[in-house]
């Protein structure tokens, strides 16, 4: 039984999408801007009205309260949102170890969000998503604002999760990243997913 299964997920602006994702699998989705990549992720996370069904370990999404679904199929948007002043207040327990692995300074959780750079915020947002220990992650350009070294550190973290059985659906603009992290690859064009091959 696949971890995540999409059955004709569609809105007037994108889809239909049919796919299944196994535990430990990472599907890297590329495609031109405006093709509907973020719309697809938002649909899977049930953040926009749409048709179709999604299943987690065979359990239909409609049978689950929306917050329960979103806690298990977590969407990390490309633009991170912050609703409290302090970084640490956005975490139940600050993941200090993972933060160090991503090259973030030790004191970052005590700082105000406003003092963090774009790259720091992006890494913090990734940590916030990972902290939920969800079986499925929907990541929208998770390393878009990072320097090359930080990108590799973030990818290491993602590969650890994959090895532990997490399934990831990742939107990226970098074909090299798709090759480094993805176990499968697809191109989204004209609102449809086309399976592509990894160039390994």
């Amino acid at each position: 039984m696949p971890r995540l299964q999409l059955i004709a997920l569609r809105s007037p602006r994108a889809g239909p999408f049919d796919l299944s994702l196994e535990p430990g699998e990472c599907l890297a989705v590329t495609g031109p801007s405006g093709a509907g990549k973020s719309l697809m992720l938002r649909m899977i996370a049930d953040l926009d009205p749409h048709d179709g069904e999604a299943l987690l370990d065979g359990r239909p999404r409609a049978a689950m309260p929306a917050p329960d679904w979103r806690r298990r199929v977590v969407y990390g948007a490309s633009e991170s949102g912050w609703w409290l002043d302090q970084v640490g207040a956005h975490f139940k327990t600050p993941p200090v170890e993972a933060a160090t692995a991503l090259g973030l300074p030790q004191d970052i959780f005590a700082r105000p969000v406003a003092s963090c750079s774009t790259g720091e915020r992006q890494r913090l947002a990734l940590l916030r998503v990972l902290a939920l220990d969800a079986p499925v992650l929907l990541l929208d350009e998770p390393t878009g604002a990072l320097d090359p070294e930080a990108v590799l550190r973030a990818e290491d973290l993602l590969r650890q999760r994959l090895a532990a059985g997490t399934s990831i659906l990742m939107v990226t603009h970098d074909p090299a990243q798709a090759n480094r992290v993805g176990t499968a690859c697809a191109v989204l064009e004209g609102g449809r997913l086309q399976v592509a091959t990894l160039t390994r």
Partner: peptide, 22 residues
Amino acid sequence: RDRVAIETQLALGVGYRQATGP
């Protein structure tokens, strides 16, 4: 104005009522 902040919370599994409480 707060759309991104509210939707980020929803995406992390926070309920609508809690996300819009403030």
